[in-house]
Each structure stands twice: as structure tokens, then as C-alpha cells.
Simulated scan of single mutants.
Amino acid sequence: MKTIHTKTTLKKLRYVLVFCLLLSLEGIAQCSGGSYGPPPPQGAIKLASKASMDFDNSLNAVIVRNQSNTYGPNTIGTPYMQKDFSTARIEQVNKVYLVRYNALTDEMEVKGGDDSEVLVISKQRNYEINQHANNLKYRVLEKIDSEKENDLGYYISIEDNDNISLYRKQCKKLVKKKQSSYGSSASSITTEFKDMRCEFYIEKAHNGHAIKVPKKKKEFLALFPDKAEQISVFIKKNRIKLNKEKSLKKLIKYINTI
């Protein structure tokens, strides 16, 4: 009788452990959205993993490359805005992938079938990538007045409108610092990833062209010659600052109404 009782107890204990494990897995899935936005849609992680495995078959415009770049043993920080891969839907292929944005190289990386393999999406005009973790929408636009020909890059959508859209551009740079050892002539080089000041861009009529927002009011008004007088009054009345996201968003919303 004692043996039967022991087996029954062990069986119940196994059920409890399995139940606890399921709860913990559910908690991980819910937290995978990060503190910057809502969790990914149900089943998104599984779909992303499967899509990444047959990535070449589902999206032709891809460069397969080993991204194990070494910046040196004394490098501080990361080139990524979000270090871990997170789920994102690429609208043009209507699939969910595991992605992360490299702000140093301006590239969107995708995890391949092999955990050590990273794929880099070839930039295509008007590509749209909706990242779940941060609730961010990236669009590929061509920068106007660039020294490069066909200068395509990723821009974060702030205000989306068929008339005038507003975007934020996030960048990082690698800074080298030379440190000398105290009391000796020996020195070591330390490199550090640093956030650069955000830049803001507008797009007219979803034409795929990114126009950098000028810092000077006169230059900004020149972008809207037919509405310059009204915009000038609005800027002065509302104390708009052309280098502040909140002010620019308010201004672009107004421009879209006149």
C-alpha cells in the first residue's frame, strides 16, 4: 500500500512540475515584447523561427553574410539599438522574422536557421518592417541630397500620412579612446559605441524620398512655399523647435491639415 501511495504522490508531483514549467514558458513569451512595447502576437516567435529557416525561399533580396564582426577586446557597448533579436513582420513578404537593427552599419539583421548564422536584408525601396518589441515601424527610403547614389537607409516612422510623413533616424558611431597606464609609457586603445544625435526627415506623398529637416526656420519654410506664411505663424505661436521630436510631430500634423 505504501508503494502505491508513493507512486501516486510522484505522479501528482510530475503534473505540478509540468504545470509550473508551462506557466514559466508563458511568462517568457509574454516578456519577450520587452519593456518598450506590447508582447509579440501569439505564435509570432514560432513563426519567426520557421520563417528564418527557409528565409532564402521566401525573400530573394537577401545577402547571406557572417556578422561576427570583431571590434576589439576593449570595446564597450553594442552597435544595436536592441541587442537581442525580436519578432518583426516584413510586410512585403507578409511573414514574421527574428530581427535586430544595427545602427552602426544601418542594416537590418535576421537570424537564420542556424543560430550562428545571421542574414542581412538587402535594402529595397519602400520595404516596411514592423518590429513588435519596440512597436516600431522601419521604412526603407532614399536620402535626398546625399553624396552617395541611391543612398537607401532605414527610417523610423513617427507620423505617417499620405501627404507629409515624419521619420527619425537613429545612428551610432565607434569612438576610439587612448588610455595611458599610470607611471608608464604603455597605452591601450579602448573603443566605445556611442549614440549620435537623432536626425529627423520628412517624406512627401509616400514617394520614397527622405528629406532632412533643416534646423533653420527659413530653410524649413522653403520646403513648403505655398504654405510658408501659415506655417511660419504656427511655428511662432506654438514655439516649435525643429530639432525636437514632439514639436516636429505637432508641426507635421498641422501641415497635413492645411
Score class of each variant (00 low, 15 high):
residue 152 L to A: 02
residue 92 Q to Y: 11
residue 124 Q to C: 13
residue 103 A to F: 00
residue 114 D to G: 03
residue 37 G to M: 09
residue 169 K to Q: 08
residue 83 K to W: 10
residue 214 P to W: 04
residue 103 A to D: 03
residue 223 L to F: 11
residue 222 A to F: 04
residue 49 S to V: 14
residue 46 K to D: 07
residue 112 G to N: 13
residue 34 G to H: 06
residue 17 L to M: 07
residue 206 H to T: 04
residue 124 Q to E: 14
residue 257 T to I: 02
residue 205 A to Y: 08
residue 14 R to K: 08
residue 113 G to Y: 10
residue 55 F to D: 06
residue 22 L to N: 10
residue 255 I to W: 12
residue 184 S to H: 13
residue 199 E to Y: 08
residue 172 K to D: 03
residue 122 S to F: 08
residue 124 Q to K: 15
residue 150 N to R: 12
residue 28 I to K: 09
residue 221 L to V: 01
residue 138 Y to D: 04
residue 246 K to L: 15
residue 240 I to C: 03
residue 159 E to T: 07
residue 80 Y to F: 15
residue 206 H to A: 08
residue 145 D to I: 09
residue 192 E to P: 02
residue 8 T to Q: 09
residue 36 Y to S: 11
residue 145 D to C: 14
residue 181 S to V: 11
residue 247 S to C: 15
residue 193 F to E: 01
residue 90 I to E: 04
residue 93 V to F: 06
residue 26 E to T: 11
residue 22 L to P: 04
residue 89 R to F: 05
residue 126 N to Y: 14
residue 7 K to D: 01
residue 3 T to A: 14
residue 47 L to G: 04
residue 62 V to H: 02
residue 154 Y to S: 10
residue 152 L to V: 03
residue 169 K to I: 00
residue 130 N to I: 12
residue 210 A to D: 01
residue 30 Q to Y: 14
residue 126 N to Q: 13
residue 179 Q to V: 07
residue 4 I to W: 04
residue 15 Y to V: 11
residue 163 N to K: 09
residue 93 V to E: 05
residue 180 S to R: 15
residue 24 S to Q: 03
residue 209 H to Y: 05
residue 210 A to W: 05
residue 187 S to I: 01
residue 172 K to S: 11
residue 256 N to D: 02
residue 32 S to V: 00
residue 134 N to A: 12
residue 225 P to S: 05
residue 191 T to F: 07
residue 67 Q to C: 11
residue 238 N to D: 07
residue 108 M to Y: 01
residue 125 R to N: 12
residue 171 C to R: 14
residue 71 Y to E: 13
residue 159 E to Q: 06
residue 232 S to C: 02
residue 40 P to G: 03
residue 236 K to V: 02
residue 91 E to Y: 07
residue 151 D to V: 10
residue 75 T to W: 00
residue 231 I to L: 01
residue 63 I to F: 12
residue 116 S to A: 10
residue 33 G to D: 05
residue 194 K to A: 11
residue 63 I to K: 15
residue 133 A to S: 15
residue 147 E to Q: 09
residue 164 I to E: 13
residue 230 Q to M: 14
residue 88 A to H: 04
residue 36 Y to W: 05
residue 172 K to Q: 12
residue 240 I to D: 02
residue 171 C to K: 15
residue 52 S to I: 03
residue 169 K to T: 05
residue 84 D to C: 02
residue 87 T to V: 12
residue 148 K to F: 14
residue 201 Y to A: 06
residue 213 V to A: 06
residue 117 E to G: 00
residue 139 R to D: 11
residue 184 S to K: 12
residue 130 N to F: 15
residue 242 L to E: 06
residue 167 Y to Q: 07
residue 78 T to A: 10
residue 126 N to A: 13
residue 55 F to H: 10
residue 99 V to S: 06
